[in-house]
């Protein structure tokens, strides 16, 4: 993973260099180094409390890091609000709890940010929203409220909502963990399709089938550090560290 090119096309989309973060005394991220190239799909896994969610939440500054550098598409995340705005325009995020806006219809959920952040005309924003709802295969739900949809449908709306901002990078924070088992597939199918189209993605997930299908690299985190990073075939066939082996045996063992 080299990251020294200067041309916009070849520079990494996301770069984390020696990132450290503490919650009080608790050292939640330890010397994280990670480079994500354009179009790469990274799957991050690890036991709960390993810092994987915190790490991706640092990428769009929902969390602040205290040491090191995070550079997204050439913009370094600092306290500068303009930089944070720039990065958030390019980075979409999908949450474990969907976080749809319950007082707005599906259509309003999708068009709010394009209209008010991207200054897109309302009609154009609605056409785009319909396009992405078609892509996640629920165009018929457009006038419903989130509370009237199933979990799987809500999560697909959440993905469409992020896509409406035309992000260059998508972050997924355990997108299927809050879903009933029968709804996991419909969400993963949408994510796989998105991956195949070349979206740059960082996914925190324990769906190892998804990792095998699309990931360029699987990262295993434990106790705030990246323990292992390898392409999926190698990661699953030949895990190097004992911690990775133990983790894999726990999630794949049954």
């Amino acid at each position: 993973m080299s990251a020294t090119a200067t041309a916009a096309d070849s520079r990494p989309m996301i770069e984390l260099r020696n990132v450290n973060k503490w919650y009080g005394e608790f050292h939640v991220l330890r010397d994280i180094n990670l480079t994500v190239e354009r179009g790469q799909k990274i799957v991050v896994c690890g036991p709960s409390g390993s810092g994987k969610s915190t790490m991706i939440r640092c990428i769009n500054r929902l969390e602040e890091h205290q040491q090191g550098h995070i550079i997204v598409e050439g913009t370094e995340l600092t306290g500068d609000l303009r930089n944070i705005d720039t990065v958030r325009r390019e980075v979409g995020m999908v949450f474990q709890q969907f976080n749809l806006f319950p007082h707005l219809t599906v259509l309003e959920n999708l068009t709010l940010a394009p209209i008010w952040v991207r200054k897109m005309p309302k009609k154009e924003a609605e056409e785009m929203a319909m396009y992405f709802l078609g892509r996640v295969k629920i165009p018929e739900q457009v006038h419903k409220y989130p509370g009237q949809l199933s979990g799987g449908q809500q999560q697909r709306v959440a993905i469409a909502r992020s896509l409406c901002m035309k992000p260059k990078i998508m972050l997924f924070d355990e997108p299927t963990s809050a879903l009933d088992p029968e709804m996991v597939k419909e969400v993963l199918d949408v994510m796989i399709e998105l991956a195949r189209e070349g979206m740059t993605m960082v996914c925190v997930t324990h769906e190892m089938g998804f990792a095998r299908a699309v990931a360029d690299s699987v990262i295993f985190m434990d106790k705030g550090e990246i323990v292992e990073s390898a392409p999926p075939t190698e990661f699953f066939a030949n895990p190097k560290s004992d911690r990775t082996k133990l983790f894999l045996s726990q999630i794949l063992g049954h």
């Binding site: 769009n60 958030r88 709890q97 976080n99 709010l112 940010a113 952040v117 909502r161």
Partner: peptide, 24 residues
């Protein structure tokens, strides 16, 4: 999560407050 979703979409403080937080 409502604040985070609004932040992640790039809504400014006042837009987040006016469109997402206060109505609810």
């Amino acid at each position: 999560g409502q604040y985070e979703a609004a932040d992640a979409l790039g809504l400014s403080y006042w837009k987040k407050t006016g469109f997402i937080v206060l109505p609810q």
